[in-house]
């Protein structure tokens, strides 16, 4: 089998048509993970030991089990539409990663900031809102951006629960025509075209924020 341009052009619009579903799922899942990630972090830091330990266990469990299996679990256990299931599961899964990012940002805020807030008689909520979070979040924005890209590349999993995103469309075309070459190549191409420029942008942000905050650490960021 060799590359057939005519067939490629024929199926291209169908696959691009599903890009909305892919991006929609990414955005919804990402918003869930941003909010839930912060909740996870705060609960994890709770001074009530049983709660923080329980949270640590839950985060570890979600983080180390395959998202595909979590998708199946939720899909068959709850009466939700495939799209909702996919967005919620990916959102919760990546919330555990995002919570690690928030944690690193919060731990990077100097202790003196906490002490100063206490000295100024700030309440706990005020301390978080006005002192800690405004300093903790901006430095980790590039890392948060990285997870947006990772999350985007994870959306083909939703084909497993019959969400008609790009890969699922390519699979359907392949099953109908017995030609997998063009559809799969197009999907790969689209992922690359969307994710690589975003990755470059994030790297630029990383470099810039590194310069701004004088933290030009060359260490491993995972």
């Amino acid at each position: 089998m060799s590359w057939d341009w005519e067939f490629a052009f024929e199926v291209f619009p169908d696959i691009v048509g599903a890009i909305g579903v892919t991006i929609g799922a990414t955005v919804v899942a990402y918003l869930i993970s941003l909010v839930l990630g912060l909740v996870f972090t705060l609960l994890r830091r709770s001074s009530f030991k049983p709660l923080s330990l329980l949270m640590a266990g839950v985060i570890e469990f979600i983080r180390t089990t395959p998202p595909l299996v979590q998708l199946f679990f939720v899909y068959y256990a709850f009466p939700m539409s495939p799209f909702t299931t996919g967005a919620v599961v990916l959102g919760v899964h990546y919330a555990t990663y995002v919570s690690e990012v928030y944690r690193s940002g919060i731990e990077a805020v100097p202790t003196s900031q906490w002490e100063a807030s206490k000295a100024l008689n700030f309440s706990k909520a005020q301390t978080w809102q006005k002192v800690i979070l405004p300093q903790a979040i901006p430095p980790v924005i590039p890392m948060l951006g990285n997870y947006l890209i990772v999350l985007f590349k994870e959306t083909p999993l939703l084909a497993g629960i019959f969400v008609t995103e790009m890969l699922q469309v390519a699979r359907i075309i392949g099953a109908d025509t017995y030609r997998f070459l063009e559809p799969i190549a197009i999907v790969g191409f689209l992922f690359l075209v969307l994710s690589y420029p975003s990755a470059l942008f994030i790297r630029y942000l990383e470099k810039r924020s590194g310069k701004l905050h004088g933290s030009a650490e060359k260490g491993v960021k995972t």
Binding site: E154, T155, P156, R171, G174, L181, I184, V187, F191
Partner: peptide
């Protein structure tokens, strides 16, 4: 840049044809 699952389909279904 391309997704793991897409690569898996590539190796399983496209590679033999190419």
């Amino acid at each position: 840049g391309t997704s793991l699952l897409v690569q898996m389909f590539f190796f399983a279904f496209v590679f033999p044809a190419l």
